[in-house]
Design a binder for these strands. Structure first.
Length: 440
RNA sequence: GGAGGUGUCGCCUAGUCUGGUCUAUGGCGCCCGCCUGCUAAGCGGGUUUGGGGCUACAACCCCAUCGAGGGUUCAAAUCCCUCCACCUCCGCCA
């Protein structure tokens, strides 16, 4: 993470050679394109500042050699000249740094260029790509579905009251079959990861500012991030953060690619700005556990890898026997670093709508430019060149939301819950039964 | 938490005390060439990364880069300060 390269965010060459492409991309995200002109003029100012500085510095270096050799009066005379030159070098260096900072600031303002295929618009302008499975018709079955809060209480699985007592709102205890359900889900996620050749990882959930900034979470999403007081450390909202920073400052051999990781970690989110949304239950909480897929590959391969991650997410939801839809997120709802994002939304019976369970993004070179992660590519001439790699991430299993969908979808009239076949071997039973005389 | 030590261009390593021909030494590995029935050995050359100039995104020239960031100085791998990582010992702890 070289400080002088922190400005690298989108490819500066695109900005120089095809600024219109950036202007269009800015507008498609609903952002102003004036930053493009600012960036271009900052770039030329920067380049001339570099030329000035380097000329002065070169002169200083060659003078220095003369000084080393000179004696007596000649030396004194040279020293007077180099002294003045040193001041000029210092000044030119400051000018270069200022110009460089200006250029970096411009670049940092520009989010990744949204894919042309991504639908334009805001949060509600997504496109439904497909629907899989059919939402259960409880009316036809002759009973009203209970929500996950009530089911969780009946099963002795989710203790929201004590979660609030101990930790506050948006906290919970998973108890009994609830805790077992989490472990079973994690096991199933890991089994899925293994099937697809992912390396399993348990990642730290506290990171330094560099890791947070490198993944783009200290930009528009900074309000949602927990910071450790007095520590200059952050709690991650997803293991995407430690996994993106995992190979920071590294040059990876292309024939080791793709590198596929499935990382388990707790996730922490302030949920600032979502006051009043999903206040009940465990749909939106400050802490949860998650298994996240993370891939390093080439830019060229990233598009196919994105489809692959989506396919794995779908297969996981299939194993949970859920009804869901896949949406193509609109440009205005993409994160800073993504060019395209697919969400899988499962049907939540008591809400009568589809809710996000998993999400996969292609961040292309956005994160690797910030974190200085490159690949070594063979060159025609027999030598090699380095280029930024691409990163992608996708949820394999975000535990609480998976639990919500399972409980509500597979509930039966008496409050018991049928366990999806794929989870049975990890849970050791086919049905979760309500507990009697619960301690609630 | 306390005390001490270490960090050099893939790996190992010289240089740091005594600032300036350090344009960072040597070995290993790797690449190219020569030699050779093939291989090995031998010989010669090359081998960090980023940026700028010029351009064919070549070659070449220049600037930066000795864990990171500051400072001192005409000049810093070398002196000073801060930070980071690792190692050893002590304390504490799951």
């Amino acid at each position: 993470m070289r400080p002088d390269r922190l400005g690298g965010v989108i490819d500066p060459r695109i900005l120089r050679e095809d600024p219109d492409r950036v202007r269009v991309a800015q507008r498609r995200r609903g952002l102003s394109d004036e930053v493009v002109d600012r960036a271009l003029s900052a770039d030329s100012a920067r380049r001339s500042a570099i030329a000035t500085y380097e000329a002065k510095r070169g002169e200083q270096k060659s003078m220095g050699k003369l000084v080393a050799r000179a004696q007596g009066e000649e030396k004194a005379e040279l020293l007077a000249r180099t002294k003045a030159l040193a001041a000029e070098v210092k000044q030119a260096e400051a000018a270069r740094e200022a110009a460089d900072a200006e250029w970096s600031d411009c670049l940092l303002e520009i989010p990744n260029l949204a894919a042309e295929e991504a639908p334009e618009g805001g949060e509600d302008d997504f496109v439904v790509l497909e629907r899989i499975g059919t939402p259960r018709d409880f009316e036809a079955e002759g009973f009203a579905p209970r929500d996950h809060i009530e089911l969780g209480r009946m099963l002795g699985a989710i203790d929201l009251d004590r979660g609030a007592k101990v930790s506050g709102s948006r906290f919970y205890f998973l108890t009994g079959v609830g805790a077992e359900l989490e472990f079973a889900l994690i096991n199933l996620a890991n089994e899925t990861a293994r099937e697809h050749g992912f390396t399993q990882v348990i990642a730290p959930s506290m990171v330094r500012p560099q890791a947070m900034a490198g993944t783009g979470f200290l930009g528009q999403a900074a309000d949602d991030v927990y910071r450790i007081e007095g520590e200059d450390m952050y709690l991650v909202g997803t293991s995407e953060v430690p996994m993106a920073a995992y190979h920071s400052d590294e040059i990876l051999d292309v024939d080791t690619l793709p590198l596929r990781y499935a990382a388990f970690s707790p996730c922490f989110r302030k949920e600032a700005g979502s006051h009043g949304k999903d206040t009940r239950g465990i749909i939106r909480v400050h802490w949860f556990d998650k298994v996240e897929m993370f891939t390093y590959t080439t830019l060229e391969e990233s598009y196919a890898e994105h489809e692959r991650l989506l396919g794995i997410e779908k297969s996981f939801l299939d194993k949970l026997e859920l009804a869901y839809q896949v949406i193509d997120t609109a440009t205005g709802d993409l994160g800073l670093s993504a060019i395209r994002k697919f969400d899988c939304e499962a049907w939540i019976p008591t809400q009568g709508k589809y809710r996000e369970l998993t999400s996969t993004s292609n961040c292309t070179e956005f994160q690797t430019r910030r974190l200085d992660i490159r690949g070594r590519f063979p060159h025609e001439s027999g030598s090699t060149t380095t280029r930024p790699l691409a990163t992608l991430n996708g949820t394999l299993c975000a535990v609480p939301r998976a639990i919500v969908a399972i409980l509500e979808t597979h509930q039966q009239a008496d409050g018991s819950v049928r366990v999806p076949a794929a989870l049975q071997k990890y849970l050791g039973r086919e049905v979760l039964e309500p507990v009697t005389g619960s301690g609630a």
